[in-house]
Amino acid sequence: MGLGKLSFTALKGVFSKPATRRYPFEARPPIAKSRGRIHFDDGKCTYCSLCELKCPPDAIKVDRQGRVFAIDHLLCILCGACVEACQKGSLSMDAKHGEPWTEKQKLSWHTEAPPKPSGDAAPKA
């Protein structure tokens, strides 16, 4: 390597921005499409269990009668098949990655059935 090229490289190193992202002190803005974590919005869910059917690692369990949605984030492979399957928009993909855990947890949500406008008895809880 010639002396000219050597000094050019050295100067470039001195004046260019460092390549390092100073995570966790500064997080970079998330990329919109990033598949970070499945987000569940229990207000919209009708507990149809389509997501359970489509989930390749069987990380989602839905109890249609009891109106319970449960997801194991330590099984979820973040493929997004459930988000595509969800008709009501209650599942979405969060761009932020999941937190590390010290214990295994399964997250579940339970909602009371909304009052039916007509006829049918409310499903058993």
Binding site: A59, I60, K61, G66, V68, F69, A70, D72, L75, S108
Partner: peptide
């Protein structure tokens, strides 16, 4: 029997 998440209410 899938050893997946147990649907237990709460949490």
């Amino acid at each position: 029997a899938k050893p997946a998440a147990n649907p237990t209410p709460g949490n």
